[in-house]
Nucleic acid binder design. Structure first.
Lengths: 157, 157
DNA sequence: TAATTTTTGCGTCTCAGTATCAAAAGTTTT
DNA sequence: AAAACTTTTGATACTGAGACGCAAAAATTA
């Protein structure tokens, strides 16, 4: 569950850039530093705010350009929760099996893992005869239930 | 699996309108006629085009106003597939347990049901101790797999 | 028919995200 | 280290789905 080591992430991103003949710049550095200093899901606009606190010279355009690079490099996961903006998940590199509970009342999104669910997802895949590209289990809930889940440390299994 | 009877849908919608002190108009009629004459998922813009073929006097605004009414009345299901527009599903009234396979290459979205998956979803709910509001299993696949699934009539169980 | 309420359509607005493009910064060559 | 070349940046314009405001139109009620 530990979040990916920031230095390791940076290095992996550097290799990715090199391989694509792209350059590491101070703006990109500020963005990935910011990305990997949080555990939370975030939106592009949030990332813009946070990255700017770290380095004033980060523009909206660069954030919107860098997030897809991070996604392509596999360090971050792009996800949609039915809102009209994207969320990014910086925990993807360590634990790719994410399920989400989205509160229908508030803005909260809880990420959880469950051995049981993982096993069931495997069975589902098999029963479909699919080599899945991606799979997403999304549960819409109400605040009460979220609180209850929160009480057991967002871990249900 | 049969799609909801158009007359029945219309009647149900009428009751819904009545109960909310809303009026049945020719525009709304044209829209629900169009909605229940297809089996496919559709977007608001598609519905606008189709409804206009039926009745020129249907405006974009009215479509965007009517679809949420249909959703609220339970006749249609609003769903998002990670695109930046919503899809609507007119099959919802009969068979509320829908799972979707979304092609990552083309625009295709295949809906399927599976007893096995239904059972597994039940188990997942239980293992979470949740009284779910909604649940969505979304599988991202490539065209090849979609074709294969198409070959077995979009029915996997 | 007049008074009241709801609905419509047009146009405007919002908001996330993309595209453009000249200026700036980083490489490479000589 | 200057010139030539490539990539990146930031400001701004643009796009496209959907929401909103408002005056005109339609339906309902009196």
């Amino acid at each position: 569950m530990a979040r990916i080591n920031r230095a390791a992430a940076k290095e992996k991103f550097l290799r990715f850039l090199e391989q694509k003949n792209l350059r590491m710049t101070s703006q990109r550095m500020a963005i990935i530093d910011t990305v990997f200093s949080t555990d939370q899901h975030f939106t592009a606009e949030q990332m813009l705010d946070w990255a700017r606190e770290r380095d004033q010279a980060v523009s909206r355009a660069t954030v919107y350009r860098t997030l897809p690079l991070l996604t392509e490099s596999g360090l971050v996961h792009e996800m949609d929760f039915g809102k009209d903006y994207k969320y990014y998940d910086p925990n993807y590199a360590d634990s790719p099996n994410h399920n989400h509970i989205i509160c229908q009342d508030c803005e909260r999104i809880v990420e959880f893992e469950s051995d049981k669910i993982e096993k069931l997802q495997g069975e589902i895949s098999q029963s479909l005869g699919f080599s899945l590209k991606a799979q997403q289990l999304r549960i819409t809930a109400s605040c009460d239930e979220l609180k209850r889940l929160g009480a057991c440390k967002n871990k249900a299994s």
